[in-house]
Design a protein around this nucleic acid. Structure first.
Length: 512
RNA sequence: GGUGCUAUCGUCUAGUGGCCUAGGACAACGGCCUCUCACGCCGUAAACCCCGGUUCGAGUCCGGGUAGCACUACCA
């Protein structure tokens, strides 16, 4: 009974896409690709009150940036437009109302669901009054619903326009088995399940549970790969499949471990990112609803492939010691039974390391393209070939493209100030004298190659017994303004003769 | 409180009864390289939650504790 693999990522447009959600999407995608199946994207916007404008676009753009491709459902095309593909649509649950009506009715007709008229206030009062109140087989007999009210009363209330919900009728005393691809057999007794609300007349929309099962069935989903927070409601979903008569085509379940806070305990949240100073969202997001701005990996200078690699390894690991994985390698090697069962603390430092690795893999021209805007923001105009050459000298010491500026600024702008610490340690009493002599040497030098300069300067230092470190560090301070940077002849090479001499003279005036 | 899930270095993890004196990576620390700062390289420190049981033998299987997490909405 080999079924075509069809998986879905089904986020809610309630804000920026959390990094944990990104990982869920990634694992779904890897699984789909590996099995030559389909990756669907469906928007679960059944809670009209939590809708955030722009969230849908944000989610789709994030996936696009990361290289997680959508085969069916909603996706963003190369022009940045949202498009719907596939013949199982619509792919926004808010546009599927008529479909859900049908299935709510089916459950009602078959006695698997019932109308309930208890108002939110009444329920709240009940909860306050009865500790651990749960709407279930034991308590529904004392509530206002179609099980306790007469048929006339029920139709009268509905007729009248009373707000109602439809609840799932959970039969008590049954052990419900959920087979989970990651955790094995999970058994929960139906007694602890409550009669979940499936549909609310107030906004004419189903709740997650109903919409989810109906859509997964209609969209022929073969595997449900989602976060562990759904595990407790998985038995309810199994019961729902059964009530609909879809047990034989029920998808397989895999519940992923959660992403945890780097410090302390608990789920990783947006607040942790703010508090510890790292993004928990792929892209920067401006939330129109609450006015907040959240930082993103893209804007922080991360490469999508680094984020993917990092995330893939947070909860999944192959045998062996490989750390670097391309998307293709992940597709090849990923497997659900090698996903960890326990939550993974989010280690931002490792994320930085991954970005460092990927930055080294990018060629200098590509990095130059990314660095040019930053140069412009510092009012620097430079030739791309030169920028690429400079990047080649400093890239091994940075994790992110924006850090290139801190490492290479002196190539573009002559030092105005001199780092005090460096001066104290490297600018000696004899340094001005050394620099004046060096200046003469350099002024008379025509061959400006690294080899020639080395052949010129080193013997001079040796002959006078000035000490290589003493002279070179002073020279470095003149050119860089601090005791940092690549090899000195690489610096003189980029700067050229005139600029080099200019900077030494300038330093002599300023430092004496 | 109830139910469920989980449990190897600080962190991510390898480990599927003998290859474990527990391996790798990040971070930390030390050294080397060197005109500086980095990178890189080499090295050091660092873990099987506890108690029982099964077995000739347990990190690995079983039971019980303990701890952490998740869920417990007319949110997803």
């Amino acid at each position: 009974m080999e079924r075509r693999v069809r998986v879905r990522f089904a986020p809610s447009p309630t804000g920026a896409l959390h990094i944990g959600g990104v990982r869920t999407a990634l694992y779904n995608y890897l699984f789909a690709r590996q099995h030559g199946g389909d990756m669907l994207l469906r928007i679960e916007d059944t809670d009209s009150t939590r809708f955030v404008p722009g969230a849908e676009e944000y989610i789709l753009e994030s996936l696009k940036w990361l290289g997680i491709e959508i085969d069916e459902g909603l996706r963003m095309n190369d022009k940045g437009e949202i498009e719907a593909v596939g013949n199982h649509g619509p792919y926004r649950q808010s546009e599927r109302r008529e479909i859900y009506h049908l299935y709510v009715k089916q459950l009602l007709d078959s006695g698997h669901a019932y109308y309930a008229f208890d108002t939110p206030e009444e329920l709240e009062a009940k909860r306050a009054q009865v500790p651990n109140f749960q709407y279930d087989a034991h308590t529904r007999t004392e509530m206002s619903n179609s099980l306790t009210l007469s048929a006339e009363d029920v139709s009268a209330r509905i007729e009248r326009g009373d707000k109602y919900v439809v609840r799932f009728k959970v039969e008590p005393n049954e052990d419900v088995h959920v087979h989970d691809l990651i955790r094995g057999e999970v058994v929960i007794n139906s007694n602890i399940l409550d009669d979940k609300v499936l549909y609310k007349s107030a906004d004419d929309l189903p709740t997650y549970h109903l919409a989810n099962i109906v859509d997964d069935h209609l969209m022929e989903i073969s595997h449900v790969i989602r976060g562990e927070e759904w595990l407790p409601s998985a038995p309810l979903h199994v019961l729902l499949y059964r009530a609909f008569g879809w047990a034989d085509t029920m998808p397989e379940f895999a519940h992923l471990p959660l992403l945890l806070k780097p410090d302390g305990n608990g789920k990783l949240s947006k607040r942790d990112g703010d508090r510890l100073g790292f993004p928990v969202f792929p892209l920067e997001f401006h939330n129109e609803k609450d006015g907040t701005v959240s930082s993103g990996y893209r804007e922080s200078g991360y490469f999508p492939e680094a984020v993917i690699n990092f995330l893939a390894l947070l909860g999944w690991h192959n045998t062996g010691d490989q750390e670097m994985f391309s998307m293709d390698e992940l597709i090849q090697q990923f497997s659900l039974d090698r996903v960890s069962k326990s939550g993974a603390k989010f280690d931002y430092e490792k994320g930085k390391w991954f970005n460092h690795q990927y930055l080294q893999l990018h060629d200098n021209e590509d990095l130059a393209d990314r660095f040019m805007p930053i140069l412009e923001s510092h009012s620097v105009k430079a030739d791309k070939a030169l920028v690429a050459k400079i990047i080649g000298l400093v890239k091994d010491r940075v994790n992110f493209v924006p850090e290139l500026w801190e490492q290479a600024d002196f190539f573009f702008v002559a030092p105005i100030e001199y780092d005090e610490k460096s001066l104290k340690k490297r600018w000696k009493e004899d340094s001005p004298k050394h620099m004046r002599e060096l200046l003469k040497l350099l002024e008379n030098q025509d061959d400006w190659s690294a080899e020639a300069l080395d052949a010129l300067v080193m013997p001079w230092i040796e002959k006078n017994e000035y000490g290589v470190g003493i002279v070179m560090n002073a020279f470095r301070i003149c050119l860089v303004g601090a005791a940092r940077g690549p090899h000195i002849w690489n610096i003189t090479d980029i700067l050229g003769k005139d600029e080099t001499i200019k900077r030494v003279k300038s330093a002599l005036t300023k430092l004496g």
